[in-house]
């Protein structure tokens, strides 16, 4: 990580870029980054915890900046609810530098939160957490009949699907007709 490289460079100025990260890592003070979700609440996350997220890790891996700069410019994730982001941050902190256990019982059981979490985790590319979440989603329909599954996961029936498709086509047709009329008006 960039922050680690920075720390290393101050400890060994003669070879700032070639010092082995793993050897120097324990001596380097941990650096932190800041993220916020839809609610604008800023969460402080250590670089080690953020390594779980391939997206954030990828974004920051080639940049080096001070803690003050990072604090002043938190990463905005406007599409993630604040409580969901808090869950993700908590999970990353809990599993920082640890082998991930085969099961995670702390994941939410409610459908809405779980799907939000799945989507957030997919967006942030947190592989292990995504595996847990998918398992949890699958558990929601264990032993359920097709009707129950349809209800739990809000899967539309084929008839509802067809009706929605027709409606969408109709709307698209109307919009296209409106645009054509507007273009003709402009031309005149």
């Amino acid at each position: 990580m960039s922050s680690t490289e920075q720390g290393t460079s101050s400890a060994a100025p003669a070879e700032p870029t070639t010092a082995p990260e793993s050897a120097a890592a324990p001596e380097v003070p941990e650096s932190f980054y800041y993220v916020h979700g839809k609610d604008k609440v800023v969460h402080k996350v250590s670089a080690g915890a953020l390594q779980h997220s391939a997206l954030i890790h990828g974004m920051i891996s080639n940049l080096g900046y001070t803690e003050e700069q990072a604090k002043a410019n938190p990463f905005p994730f406007e599409n993630i609810d604040g409580d969901i982001l808090q869950m993700v941050v908590d999970w990353c902190n809990q599993h920082k530098g640890k082998p991930t256990p085969p099961e995670d019982t702390n994941l939410p059981k409610q459908k809405e939160k779980l799907f939000d979490l799945v989507l957030a985790v997919n967006y942030l590319e947190i592989k292990e957490l995504l595996t847990y979440c998918c398992k949890q989603v699958a558990m929601m329909v264990k032993g359920k009949s097709p009707e129950e599954i349809r209800e739990i996961w809000m899967i539309p029936t084929d008839a509802e699907d067809e009706a929605a498709e027709k409606e969408a086509k109709k709307r698209a047709g109307k919009e296209a007709a409106g645009e054509t009329a507007a273009a003709a008006g402009d031309a005149k």
Binding site: K38, M59, F75, P76, E78, E112, V118
Partner: peptide
């Protein structure tokens, strides 16, 4: 850093997720 934040903000303009299976 500013570019990075702009990029992230652009990534975040997607609508807030719904919570149905169909939206996954």
């Amino acid at each position: 850093l500013l570019t990075l934040n702009e990029q992230t903000a652009k990534l975040s303009i997607d609508p807030v997720y719904d919570t149905n299976w169909c939206d996954v």
